[in-house]
Structure formats: C-alpha cells, structure tokens
Design a protein around this nucleic acid. Structure first.
Lengths: 219, 219
DNA sequence: CGAACAATGTGCACAGATTCACAAGCTGAC
DNA sequence: GTCAGCTTGTGAATCTGTGCACATTGTTCG
C-alpha cells in the first residue's frame, strides 16, 4: 500500500514528540484518512495493536520500516545534473531518510567534476561502475525528456531494478523493473484543472458560495 | 481525471511530430493504458472523435487544454528558496507549460534579493502583494517541514486557492482549498518496498525467475 | 449506390478499495 | 473478580474504477 510511508512519517513525528501509544482514530486524523482504513492497512501488515489501548508507536514504526525495507539504506544514483538533479543531490531529505546519493552522472562533460551537494558529478559512462561498486538498485532520472529513455536503458543495463522518473515521458522498460513517475507539470495541471472548475462554477451560478470557515485535512 | 495531462503530453508530442489523427488504441499504447479507458476518459470530456477514423490530434489537444484550464497561463508563487525552491524556480519546465513563476519568497533575509532562475527572492512578508499584483491562485511550498503549515496559512490568507506541497507533512487548510502533495522520499520508499519484496522473493524461492526479456510500458 | 471495414461510444459485469457496523478482547477501577 | 469503557480486527455492504464486448456510425472502395 502507498499509504504506509505516510503513516510512517506521522508515527516518526509522534515518536519524536514523545507519544507512546496511538489509536487508529488518532492516526487517521493526522493522516487525513478513515480510521477503518488505517486498521485494515495495519492489520494487513500483520502488526498487532492492543484492543482498548491502540498501537505502540515505536513498535509500529519498526514494523512499517521492516515492511518497506527501510531497515537498511538504499543508495540511489542520479542521472542528469541539471537544475533538478542538482537540487535532488543537495536535498538533505533523501540521505536523512535512508537514501544516500551514491553518485550523480551527466552526459555533458562540462558538468563532470563539478560539485553538487557534496558529490562530484561523474561522466555518464561510469554509471555501471557506480552501480556495481555501491550496489545501487534505485536510479533517479532527472534528464531532459529526450534523454530519459536512454537514461532508463542505461540504468537497467547497469543493473538497477527500480527507477524514479522526473522526465515528462512514458518510459518503456523490461518487465520486472519498477517505475514511478513524478511529473511536476502534471501536478500543476491538476491544480489548474481545479482552479478552472472553481472559476467556471463561480461564473455559472449567480450566488457564489463563499469558502466555509471549517478546516479539513487534505492529504 | 488525473490521466488527462498524460494524454495531453503525448498528444502534443504527436502533433509536433506531424501526426494529424490518432486512434484510441494508438494513444492507449503510448500512454501505457487500456484503449477502452482512453475512450471513456475522452468521451467524458464530451470531445467527439470520428468513428472509423479516430481523434483529430489538434482538436483533442485544444479540448483537453480547455478542460484543464490551460488556455491561459497560471502564475505560481514559490515559498521557500532552499535547494528545492531554487531548482523549481530555475526549472524551465514550469514556464514552458503555462506556469510562470510570479515570485519566490523566503523568510531568511540572507536569501532575499539573491537571484534564482531569473527571479529575485522576496521577503516572506511580501507574499500578499505578489499574489495580489500578479493575480496568483497557485502556491508551491518548498520549505522545511516545520515551516510548511505556516507557509500554507500565509498562502491561503493571501488568497491562493490551490497549493502544491513538497514538504513531508500533512497540511491542514480550510475546505475549498485544493492541495496536492509530492513527497520525494515517499516515492523512494515505495520503490524500496518493491526492492524489498524482490529481495525476499528471491531469497524465498530457490529457483529465482529471471527477468523476462519482454518490454512493457509502465507509467 | 452499397457493402465491407474501421474505430468510437457505452451497457454490463467484475475486481478492488472503501466504509460501516459489530463482535472480540484488553485495561483499569471498584 | 467482575463490570464498564475503549479500541482493535474483520465480515458485509457499497462505491469506484476497469475492461470486455458489441451496437453504432462514419469512411472507403468497387
């Protein structure tokens, strides 16, 4: 389930805040989802909570980490040292959460040997060596669209089995390779879709409904 | 539907390549989804294709753009000029696709007035003026987790109605505000989950199944 | 003009996810 | 020890989304 990381995030926060136990309802509230859903998700994990009390935060964190494979680090290699690649390499959030940057490569020789976020950019050709040396199984594609498929091919050939793709293209990879795509422009387009609907709804009805003052949690 | 932007992307590529008509099957192939799904999605749009021929690419692009509200630009304001904020501001993909950066603000006065991607960082206090002056309705949060809720509150107060949140926290906003969250670490955790399953599956069964050589499109 | 062909649009059935509601079980107080 | 109060875990109903199959309709060729 794609919600486990969200729970994990919240639980880690709670643990840091000194909370020892949490109920499914409390966790649901914080995650902005239904309480029954939380229980189903956690029961699927096999993790046992205690009836009448709730879940022990530390134990739950341990269980989710284990399930997600976060009991050890997963080095990642970044292909493309442009704006986005540099930001990702420099973004502390990766290393902090168990995904150290094993290396960053670029095809442009002008970028090679420049320093970004503590790592030195290596030439694209060295990708296989980096993957082999650091035992990398996750690759990140931060190249322009036109170069993304080639980057994917090279990553797969080098032995990477999971790819996070930031380029706005649909990649074709052998079966057995896991791909996730994050397209920033698509996210904005979805927002603009909502804005559009908002605008036409207001234009359509004469008596526009003002935003209610209530607060809701939106994940 | 969240698939429209993907179709749009592909259709724009096809249009640029000189393709005039496309069938639901062709589009489905390129998007890595089912053909019936494509037809359902497009029929929901009200867009009419021609039976026996397919869809006219240009017209479809126009229709989807219209539906998504992409017939005009949507200026965005970025809160947080750290690693990620700077990359986003400098990332050409935003402006190119109709989301020009109206401004970027940061609470840190040392960052104010520095140049990132052609824009000058403004102090956080000027957020309301920027939003009002450029008629911004979309905000992007690229702050550290602890500052994200404050950023959201300020954006809403300034009049922004849609927020793209890169901080790994669940934000609480008034109903009527649209939020989308992109958590890079969560994406990696989902990949590590698959890696974990892969590893335990291989360890579990003595005769590991090698990756099939076939190719599949994975979105 | 008519018939064969091609591709859309949609009714229907199915699968998966979500939510409700409740029985089962733990805790703590008297 | 028993009882009241919570909270989990899960069966059942529901809803959403997906995919198949086919009738419908436009095109093209003879």
């Amino acid at each position: 389930m794609a919600r486990l990381p969200v729970y994990l995030q919240i639980l880690a926060d709670q643990a840091a805040a000194g909370v020892a136990n949490i109920s499914s309802e409390g966790l649901a509230e914080l995650a902005g989802v239904n309480a029954a859903k939380v229980r189903k998700d956690l029961s699927y994990l096999g993790s046992y909570g205690t009836r009448g009390v709730g879940y022990e935060v530390d134990y739950l964190v341990y269980q989710i980490r284990r399930e997600l494979g976060l009991d050890h680090d997963w080095p990642v290699v970044i292909v493309g040292a442009g704006n986005l690649g540099q930001a990702l390499a420099g973004y502390g959030g990766f290393t902090d959460r168990g995904f150290p940057v094993a290396g960053i490569v670029d095809i442009d020789h002008d970028k090679v040997d420049t320093l970004v976020g503590g790592a030195r950019v290596r030439p694209l050709d060295e990708l296989p060596q980096i993957v082999a040396a650091k035992n990398v199984s996750i690759g990140v594609i931060a190249t322009p669209p036109a170069a993304a498929q080639d980057a994917a091919d090279r990553l797969v050939k080098a032995g990477v089995t999971s790819i996070l793709n930031f380029a706005p293209v649909v990649l074709s990879v052998p079966v057995g390779i896991t791909i996730r795509k994050v397209d920033l422009a698509v996210e904005l387009q979805i927002l603009s879709y909502h804005e559009q609907r908002r605008a036409s709804a207001q234009g359509g009805q004469l008596h526009a409904v003002p935003n209610e003052p209530g607060r809701g949690v939106t994940a």
